[in-house]
Write a protein that binds this DNA or RNA. Structure first.
Ligand code: MN
Ligand code: MN
Ligand code: MN
Ligand code: MN
Lengths: 218, 218
DNA sequence: TTATAAATTTAGACAAATCTAAAAATTAAA
DNA sequence: TTTAATTTTTAGATTTGTCTAAATTTATAA
């Protein structure tokens, strides 16, 4: 049996590893889960024993095949529940993440499948984040990070790569929603911040924000 | 903060106390939760410290006002989720209890309220069990236990007072569903079992089963 | 009313998950 | 290539929830 805490570690490791190959540092996991490095080391040993990760002391961890599968399942559940909350229960996109953090740990394969069907097999959650299918495959995406666009180019917001409440509420205050049109007016070298227009209204955003906005160009 | 284990103890105590006054024995709780009496004593001390129950050593526990409120909230969540699973996700009535045991611990008042509204403020769960409203009030019921009916009397099944899978699957095998018509043909004194008809087909059931079937007489 | 049985609590231990402080290993700097 | 800084691991504790075995209290029976 895999515990709730173990599931959260697997999810954190998946989030932190771009390529499922490369290994993740103890400190990075500690920061992601808001815990101490020593706690991370303890837990890594446990999930190593369960063969959920590969671990080389002082060198970091990476997900094993079964660990990756498990982590993707949790992400799938998290995002399906977010869709449920928004499309069926009328929650706002900035209200669903914390509840999904709880719901993602409910154990029932039949429930996940039934929920998926009930929602119409959605490919993206309310934040434009991709939902892996039953086999763990993510839908292909053709988006770029806003921070990577050239000056003068433009497109539509199709997703965010972070869905915590404070970030989403900041986006709300800028009227940045899924589907909004954004153009890059100016790139400031000094701090990599951007002058942009959102549906033709101008604004200035930090690189930190731009990095987490996914844009699809026409 | 109230933990998941504490919630389960409160729920068990509520279930075991007919009148919210009378106190529940350590052994009864241990049996209900499939744990040891010594574990129960340990936990009782913890929830006593949190003023969720009143406890007299060797004499048993009863729910305090706040403990009762909390216990009813959990029952409310459990039964609302059961309704969701059956009416929206097409689960059978014998498949929902175990999943609801998990879902009842999800913490979000807004979620419970939204779910309640989404389901149309149901008063009974898929097993005919009453769902307390937001204020903790249970809907009035006019049913009797089948075991209390006289020979010759009859009525319709409006609920069960137990919803574990094995019991419900046994009812399925007898074609006892909500709405089924039942008549008492004979009461056997020896073991209090009953000869009955279910939609005019005869069957023999134990007192243990009859006690958990709720009947509404015409 | 005393002895026996049953129920309950206490004592001591353990696994899970976490922490702080200290030691060890790795990386970066001089 | 040493030394210093950073990262990571280990040692030792703590909290929660559970267990077994033993002691205590209450209930029952002779
Ligand atoms: Mn989320
Ligand atoms: Mn999301
Ligand atoms: Mn149930
Ligand atoms: Mn039920």
């Amino acid at each position: 049996m895999i515990t709730l805490a173990e599931e959260n570690y697997l999810k954190a490791i998946l989030k932190l590893s771009k390529n499922s190959e490369d290994s993740v540092s103890t400190n990075a996991i500690a920061e992601e889960l808001d815990t101490k490095a020593s706690s991370v080391t303890d837990m890594i040993k446990k999930i190593t024993d369960k063969q959920l990760v590969d671990y080389v002391p002082y060198r970091g961890v990476s997900l094993s095949k079964s660990g990756l599968k498990k982590a993707i399942e949790i992400v799938r559940k998290h995002r399906l529940w977010e869709v449920f909350l928004v499309t069926k229960l009328q929650f706002k996109w900035d209200e669903v993440h914390d509840i999904a953090e709880q719901l993602e740990h409910i154990k029932s394969q039949k429930l996940v499948d039934a929920l998926d069907a009930y929602l119409g097999y959605p490919q993206h959650d309310p934040h434009g984040e991709p939902i892996p299918n039953k086999d763990g495959q993510f839908p292909k995406s053709f988006s770029k990070r806003l921070s990577e666009l050239e000056k003068g180019s433009s497109g539509q917001v199709v997703g965010v790569s972070q869905d915590n409440q404070s970030f989403l509420q900041y986006l709300n205050s800028l009227n940045i929603t899924l589907g909004a049109s954004i153009s890059v007016i100016q790139k400031i070298d000094f701090d990599d911040s951007l002058e942009i227009t959102i549906n033709n209204k101008s604004a200035h955003i930090s690189n930190d924000v731009a990095r987490n906005l996914l844009i699809k160009q026409k």
